[in-house]
């Protein structure tokens, strides 16, 4: 039945709906660049969602744990073998995503007899300067969104990941207006927390079109911080150590927020 083109399109559409539903409850993740690095942040402690991929690359993911794990392993494998045969400087997030992950995820998604990857991935690679930071989101169908400038948008120094398109867009529009390039760590942490809160609020409402009031954001943030843990990691810009990834414990993150 799939041989007929129309059936194939229909099957893909069904599959897209299915995957979107599966991913819809994923807790948002915000990656925000600041003067001395890049911060990844999310709330919730059910399972780890932020990972180290290579010296300068980190990944955040929502979706099925089995699929996330396979993609994570694949990414680490590729980066590690590239870094081993050439050098750490030759490992590039752009190539990792465009050349390796995206085609694999696309073909898994479109081969309707096999299972798709139920995962949405957020990557960041820290550069020597904030302008060289690279952010990437890879969708379950292999589509890639980057932080680079296009006709429609200026270059951004952040990227977000969430369960629904609505939630993602609200987080982005918040960061676009509130987050300044070259911000301090404290400002970045606050922006990331607020962005998470906005994304999380949007997941709980069906028709969240507008950014919520500041007081509502602060209230939601307080409520969530009281009950859930913070998961955070940073990629440090400081080039004195090769490995830039550092996970922040819940306690460390709270101390920095002043909560």
């Amino acid at each position: 039945m799939i041989e007929e083109p129309y059936r194939w399109v229909e099957a893909i559409a069904n599959r897209r709906e299915y995957v979107e539903t599966q991913l819809a409850s994923g807790s948002p993740i915000a990656a925000v660049g600041y003067r001395d690095g890049i911060l990844f942040l999310t709330l919730g402690q059910a399972r780890q969602k932020i990972f180290e991929i290579y010296d300068r690359i980190a990944m955040g993911a929502i979706g099925h744990p089995g699929d996330i794990e396979r993609l994570r392993m694949g990414a680490i494998e590729l980066a590690s073998t590239e870094g081993f045969t050439r050098s750490a400087g030759d490992v590039s997030l752009r190539r990792l995503a465009h050349y390796s992950l995206s085609p694999v995820m696309k073909s898994a998604f479109e081969q309707v007899y096999g299972p798709p990857y139920l995962a949405r991935l957020l990557f960041a690679e820290v550069g020597a300067q904030p302008e060289e930071d690279s952010f990437l989101r890879v969708e379950y169908d292999g589509a890639i969104a980057t932080n680079g400038a296009t006709f429609a948008q200026v270059r951004q120094d952040f990227a977000v990941l969430s369960g629904t398109r609505q939630s993602t867009e609200l987080m982005e529009s918040f960061l676009k207006s509130e987050h300044a390039p070259g911000a301090t760590f404290e400002a970045a942490l606050k922006a990331a927390l607020d962005a998470w809160s906005i994304g999380h609020m949007a997941l709980q409402k069906d028709d969240a079109k507008e950014l919520p009031e500041r007081t509502a954001i602060a209230k939601h943030r307080q409520e969530q911080l009281a009950t859930t843990g913070i998961e955070a990691a940073i990629l440090e810009r400081d080039a004195s150590a090769a490995i830039r990834y550092r996970a922040l414990s819940d306690k460390e993150a709270r101390a920095l927020i002043g909560d």
Partner: peptide, 19 residues
């Protein structure tokens, strides 16, 4: 494809020299 993503889950992780 470059990503093999076909690990055989034997319970033990593959070590780097084997990879």
């Amino acid at each position: 494809s470059l990503v093999t993503l076909d690990q055989i889950f034997s319970g033990a992780s593959e070590d780097f020299p084997e990879l």
